[in-house]
Amino acid sequence: MESFSVYIIPVVICIIIVFGLVKRVPLFDTFIAGAKEGFQSSVSILPSLVGLIMAVTMLSASGALELFTDLVAPVADFLGFPAQVLPLALLRPISGSGSTAVLTEIFQNYGADGFIGRVASVMMGSTETTFYAIAVYFGSVGIKKTRHAIPAALMADTTGYIMSVLAVNLFFR
């Protein structure tokens, strides 16, 4: 798997560069302009990350996360789902910074390359902040009745979580 995956990023970057060359884009200037945007949006999430990482670190230090994991473990095990990633599944649709905070806690406790770390990574990468998207898009045009949007979106999220476990098992065992 590694041999294929290590090619993805360099190949994508080269395609972008060649594409830019052909289209005569001022490459470095454009890169700088984009990097500036990335810098600003990274820095702008800092305050919410401080608040949420602090709260999740507190939950973990107090033993509350362990307690929760132990409580749901029997049900999660029965479903073949690692209990340690459940806090991530709960927070993921609600808050981007909150789920980032939980993900870093998972990486710290179980490593990024372990089974749990990988499942958490795939969950994070294959889903979005569902309620944020719903609020922004429907709110922007004053829609009050969202009809079946929330059930359909949450079904998709749940599928993403189940598929994360299956896909990690498929590609890494």
Binding site: V12, I13, I16, I17, F19, G20, V22, K23, V25, L27, T30, F31, I32, A33, G34, A35, K36, E37, G38, F39, S41, S42
Partner: peptide, 14 residues
């Protein structure tokens, strides 16, 4: 994050 948004800006401009 900066590097990636930089590359994507090139992709977009191209």
């Amino acid at each position: 994050m900066c590097a990636w948004t930089g590359f994507m800006k090139i992709a977009d401009a191209g």
